[in-house]
Amino acid sequence: MKPKTNLHPKWRELKLTGRLLRSNPTAMAGLIILVAMGLMALCAGWLAPYDPIKLSLGERLQPPGAVHWFGTDEMGRDILSRVMFGARISLRIGFVVICIAGGLGSVIGAVAGYYGGRVDNIIMRVMDVILSFPSLVLAMALAAAMGPSLNNAIMAVAFVMIPKFARLVRGEALSVKEMPFIAAARVSGARNRWIIAHHILPNCLNSVIVLGTLTLGDTILIAASLSFIGLGAQPPTPEWGAMISVGRKFLLDQWWYATFPGLFILTTVIGFNILGDALRDILDPRIRR
């Protein structure tokens, strides 16, 4: 959300949004959760009591206690520290995916909506192909095809998310392009590309932000699911889904292993979802999940 200085109305809108958010307790709760997670991710280096990667085999599978608040894993690593560093990874995945999918999806959607006709038809059929799969299935297939790694998982999830944004922006673009100021711009000789970049896309920004926030939660869940089935982050990366995946083997005797990373996923996603819900109510009452 970086408004340009020449867009005064945007500034005013932003301020209004902020005021409305502050008066909404659930939204504030969501925001607080996310800020806390964000801080934890940023400061994991200082906050974490132990090195998240270094082995200490003598301390493997210790239950939670005064020394290790969340216990240790099968390599004797401190689970609290790993979970803290894990916040970095999950948040990064979320934001990168949304930036890629939101950016590409918006452009694709704007192009389809603005040009219409055959371009629109072809683009949307391609989107339909992507939408012909449940998102998790397609993300899994792509991640498997590209080989398991964190970056590939990010790409796979982003790819799956593109049509959501494309559809949204296309719809908006269809209505925006009928507005008088577009015609005016065209008459004054503006090129199509310029119109898309300066009129169509900025006008869709609100909806994209709302959808982005709402999708962030989903993104984190899908990425964690990929890691859970071994198609995401690679060891010894402390990714939450991957931790649950290993922790599952120890579920019966070492309950803490899989429990804490899951709680953190849940909390983070709740944060995004309630913030997203509130944002939607404030910014754009039209979008419905």
């Binding site: 498997a144 080989g147 398991p148 071994g230 690679q234 060891p235 010894p236």
Partner: peptide
Amino acid sequence: LQLMANPT
């Protein structure tokens, strides 16, 4: 370390 699918 590089974990990969068994067929790969």
